[in-house]
Design a protein around this nucleic acid. Structure first.
Length: 509
RNA sequence: GGUCCGUUCGUCUAACGGUUAGGACGCCAGGUUUUCAUCCUGGUAAUAGGGGUUCGAUUCCCCUACGGACUGCCA
């Protein structure tokens, strides 16, 4: 068997959304699984839809996800260039081959004329007006024009496109790894434009030419391409090339209702649909990203892998290496998957709990840096150790631990109401004295001391612990009180107790 | 409208034609507990409908319903 070669071929018209990332991921996994190559090709044949930054965004997204490619834009390779706009000169040649073999023809119809044709047919009751066997005879093209007239128009520089000539009466079959045999009658296909008047090929031509030239063995792409797959099969045949194997992936659906997940759903439903944050260069509109929202790439990938695929076992947690090992295209489902934000969080929470304290602390330190706080690495690690299980998304790291880095400026009113009693100051001072006397200030020791104090004074556990928590963090959240005290240290703990007494004492009478 | 694709708990899904239809997320209840979590235990909940084929259909076939994609000189 030949070496497996697959590609991810996005068009740089904006940020890559998670459906695209999943397509890239499955291609990557498939290539790795079979010891083949994965390439990134940029399909920028539509000059009018160029969006600055989109290509860099795609590359950065793949990098963040850990989806490395062997050939492609940015890394080069034996089939360079990998940007279709830079391969422009290539495509005309193949369009000409099709013309010369009678499989394609020139067409000179203007956009207005095309529109008029559609209107005309609609008026005649034709549901789907197409440029096809039914209509091509009444349009302006090299089929209806004389050879001389066609030459004349071509030579005079009149704009033209090249259209494929769809065969009259034929069943065209696409063999799809996921869906089996899909058959479409040629009369349902239209004479698609292969080569545009601006000198660029359309997707249909460019993707066939490039896949052939780049020796692509398997085309793994979204289901939205299934309807045009017969056209592609036809093109391979016309060009005398062996077609790659096809696998059309089911769509990613929006979490509520139905329909393809789209850009707008994220902001509407409060979860990212993009791997990285994206700022639209034209409107300056910002769309949130998984990275900036505090997801770990490992969690993001694991979650994405399971949207449409499963290993057939009950294992759900997979590293990229394990995914490579377990992946098979045959186990990809047929039906679309609704994206579930809750499950995404669960994966992230899981991966955060799996991280070492030190690894997690690098994220904490990043957050601290942004806030202009510098922190000792081992201290940050300790904070992570006692905070981690409360962290679902990375920003929770700060939400659950900020009081280790800056003292509370105010106290949650509801908590004060509930726990701050007239006798509290005296009690806290007693407890402070006991704490002050402690030789061992480990969390275990502190816990023993505080509990003994509560017991000896016949106090309520909840009452004391919650009050203590209040004065130390300013509210009712965070890790265990003993762990907080131990990490804060004796001096700081005593200071916060005293400070709270100063500011809360008058208030609660 | 047409063409194509699809349909198992709310969601992601498992089940050589033979299982009490399994797991996970969520949710609910209980336990642990100083907040919130974690953790543990238990529970809720599904084969879209109708016909076939078969000793036996979630599984194979047909129809219906529903959903989706596509229907550009966009990819």
């Amino acid at each position: 068997m030949n070496e497996v070669r697959v590609r991810f071929a996005p068009s740089p018209t904006g940020p890559l959304h998670i459906g695209g990332v999943r397509t890239a991921l499955y291609n990557y996994l498939f290539a790795r699984k079979h010891g083949g190559k994965f390439l990134l090709r940029i399909e920028d044949t539509d000059q009018t839809r160029y969006v600055p930054g989109a290509e860099d965004y795609i590359i950065e997204s793949l990098k963040w996800c850990g989806i490395a490619y062997d050939e492609g834009v940015g890394v080069g390779g034996p089939h360079s260039p990998y940007r279709q706009s830079e391969r422009k000169e290539l495509y005309r040649e193949f369009a000409d081959v099709l013309i010369n073999t009678g499989k394609a023809y020139y067409a000179f119809d203007t956009p207005e004329e095309l529109e008029a044709m559609r209107e005309r047919l609609k008026a005649r009751g034709v549901a789907t007006p197409q440029y096809d066997a039914f209509t091509r005879g009444e349009m302006v093209n090299s089929l209806t024009l004389s050879k001389e007239e066609t030459e004349k128009r071509l030579n005079s520089g009149e704009p033209f496109v090249i259209r494929i000539l769809i065969p009259e009466n034929e069943e065209i079959q696409v063999d799809d790894i996921i869906r089996g045999e899909v058959k479409v009658h040629s009369s349902r296909l239209d004479d698609k434009v292969l080569f545009k008047s601006d000198g660029m090929p359309t997707y249909h031509l460019a993707n066939i030419v490039d896949d052939h030239l780049m020796e692509i063995t398997h085309v793994i792409r979204g289901e939205e391409w299934l309807p045009s797959a017969p056209l592609h099969v036809l093109l391979y045949r016309y060009l005398g090339w062996e077609a790659p194997q096809f696998a059309h992936l089911p769509l990613l659906l929006k979490p509520d209702g139905n329909g393809k997940l789209s850009k707008r759903d994220g902001d509407r439903l409060g979860f990212p649909v993009f791997p990285l944050r994206w700022t639209d260069p034209f409107s300056n509109e910002v769309s949130s990203g998984y990275r900036e929202s505090g997801y770990l790439p490992e969690a993001f990938i694991n979650m994405l892998a399971f949207l449409g695929w499963n290993p057939g076992t009950e294992q759900e947690i997979f590293s990229m290496e394990q995914l490579v090992d377990a992946f098979s295209i045959e186990r990809v489902g047929k039906s679309g998957s609704k994206f579930d934000p809750e499950k995404a969080k669960w994966f992230n929470h899981h991966y955060i709990k799996e991280l070492t304290d030190e690894n997690l602390s690098t994220h904490l330190i990043d957050i601290l840096k942004e806030k202009g706080i510098s922190a000792d690495k081992s201290y940050a690690s300790e904070v992570c150790r006692i905070t981690r299980e409360r962290v679902v998304l990375l920003p929770d790291l700060w939400n659950q631990s900020w009081f280790f880095f800056t003292e509370p400026e105010s106290y949650d009113e509801k908590v004060v109401q509930k726990f701050w009693k007239p006798e509290t100051p005296a009690l806290l001072r007693q407890l402070a004295a006991v704490l002050d006397a402690a030789a061992d200030f480990s969390a275990e020791s502190v816990e023993t001391i505080v509990k003994a104090f509560i017991h000896d004074n016949e106090l309520g556990m909840g009452q004391v612990m919650n009050t203590l928590r209040l004065v130390l963090v300013g509210g009712s959240f965070g890790p265990g009180v003993a762990a907080i005290i131990a990490l804060l240290g004796k001096t700081e703990t005593l200071r916060r107790i005293e400070k709270a007494i100063q500011s809360l004492d008058n208030l609660a009478i």
